[in-house]
């Protein structure tokens, strides 16, 4: 038995070395070589650069948009941190899923409440501090408000829920279409190249940046938000930097 143990231990060591060479040196380097040569852009993260050569993001990775002139993406449980992806992981009957993961804080008399806090009705000196996830109810309210929609307007499922990766680059066509009027108004107000912007032009851009189902049936259609916003800037100019 001892002899078997010794022999097979030595065999283990030898096989580990050989398999390491095959699977962790030759194989990934081969993929790297082929990838860098044949699909250079994808192999390096499908990065987008601006005219000055600065990287402004990746086609595949969603980013945070808050300005009225841009299409907004889906809620993200990680604030579009592309070096810390993740979902909300809130269960279907968890109150935080609907109301958000904020918390109530009580301050002593005269103390200033924390930033972003709102007073809680019926509880003096108590404030609600929103968390990293605002909840379906608040995301829906916010989206309706921003886009001037009726309080009972039906919203598509994606725009009020956090994605799995927290980096979803896409929104649904409905979610994009509902934002068109807001964008037209905001851009028009800035004048210049954007003075003549029409909803139809923006809708055409949505069409152009919609990825259909692969092979006609796989997955669901979606609009790439970053590419759509870049297309907007291309046609109508980048919005002026916000006042500090």
């Amino acid at each position: 038995m001892l002899k078997t143990l010794g022999r097979e231990t030595w065999n283990s060591v030898k096989v580990i070395v050989v398999l390491l060479v095959l699977t962790v040196i030759i194989y990934p380097l081969l993929v790297w070589g082929i990838g860098q040569v044949a699909f250079n852009k994808q192999a390096n993260g499908s990065l987008i650069t601006n005219s000055q050569g600065q990287v402004i993001g990746s086609e595949l990775i969603g980013q945070q948009f808050t300005r009225a002139e841009y299409f907004h993406g889906r809620p993200s449980a990680v604030g579009y941190n592309a070096a810390g992806s993740g979902a909300s992981n809130l269960g279907p009957t968890n109150p935080q899923l609907i109301d958000g993961n904020g918390s109530e804080v009580t301050v002593t008399d005269g103390q200033t409440p924390p930033p972003n806090a709102t007073p809680v009705a019926g509880k003096p000196n108590t404030y609600y501090v929103p968390g990293s996830y605002l909840g379906v109810k608040n995301y829906a309210e916010q989206f309706r408000q921003e886009n001037g929609l009726a309080a009972d307007a039906k919203l598509p499922a994606d725009i009020v829920t956090a994605s799995g990766s927290g980096l979803d680059p896409q929104i649904s066509v409905d979610a994009a279409t509902l934002q068109v009027n807001r964008i037209v108004q905001a851009r028009k107000a800035e004048g210049g190249k954007a003075a003549s912007i029409t909803p139809e032009q923006v809708k055409t851009l949505i069409d152009q940046n919609t990825d259909g189902r692969d092979l006609g049936i796989l997955g669901e259609p979606g609009v790439n938000v970053l590419k759509l916003n870049l297309a907007l800037d291309n046609l109508f100019g980048a919005p002026p930097a916000p006042a500090k």
Partner: peptide, 20 residues
Amino acid sequence: VNVATTDTNPGGNMEGKEVR
């Protein structure tokens, strides 16, 4: 929220899911 799946809305329970 509109949970009916169409070509313009993924519908259903989208929490934790990707549009594509």
